[in-house]
Amino acid sequence: MNRKTLLLGIVFLAGAAMTGPVLADYPEKPVTLICWSSAGSGHDLMARMIAKVGEKYLGEPIVVVNKQGGSGRVAMSYVLNQRPDGHVLMTNTRSMTLRFGEANARFSIDDFRYIGRVVSDPFVIVVNEDSPFQTIDELFEHVRANPNEVTIGGYSTKSVDESLVEELEAAAEIELNYIPYRGGKEPVVAVLGGHIEVALANPSEMITNYQAGNLRVLALASKERFQPFQDVPTLTEQGYPVAPDYWRGIMAAKDVPDAVVDKWSVVLEQVVADPEFQAFLDNANMYDGYLPSEAFAELVRRQSGP
């Protein structure tokens, strides 16, 4: 290495050091929103809609980049390896934070700052229109007589779906045969084709087949009834207090300055309230679940606790 390149190197390093932690007027450049799901998924669409609507409130473009893999762990390690100046944020979901509680978890809940929850999808319990079960009680009665026989499909293993089934089994003192699937729609397809008996789904995954009269909703796994299932009782009403939800939100690395979190809290609230974003939620059958930063952090803490 000659002197010239050495000198150049020093100048570069000094330059890099100076642009470091000094926070000018955030945001000073486009913000990257890392999405841990594949391009085109419901989760990705939400991220891209936040990016599109958020641009006018943030004042800088927001670029969505997909980093798939390891149920969000690839995205998490990427975000934690970036300079925490608030120009790299990521989307998160209930299933991701659920794993913080696992014994050999790579990341902990304190590695991140929680900016806000955006969407909160409730679950419904569905059967084929041809199914003999008209109510959730009829189903449970049959399950009690035939433990471990009735198949119930849901998304993935160690997921919100599986924990819903476990909670339900405990609350109703029944034993079901849980079948994990790779995608949220697959259990609904299996019920439509008569391959399994019951499916768990978010409304967006079953609404069209419900409207066409191919599916029957036995119960809503929520505290209160919601549209368009006003006539269907909730599990809570039936005496089984099981009401999980599948939420999606935004988080950042833990060392991000307070100013960034404050700015984004305002932006995110404006985004969710924007008519364009509300129209998107309507079209996609997702449910507005906006929670500000502190309430969101508190929720994550509660849900991933022991």
């Binding site: 391009a39 085109g40 998924s41 809609m49 609404i207 069209t208 409207q211 129209a279 079209n283 996609a284």
Partner: peptide
């Protein structure tokens, strides 16, 4: 991917 795009444009693919 098309399913997502259709929903974005307020077209709900399904039996109806």
């Amino acid at each position: 991917v098309l399913l997502g795009a259709l929903m974005l444009h307020n077209v709900q693919p399904g039996p109806l």
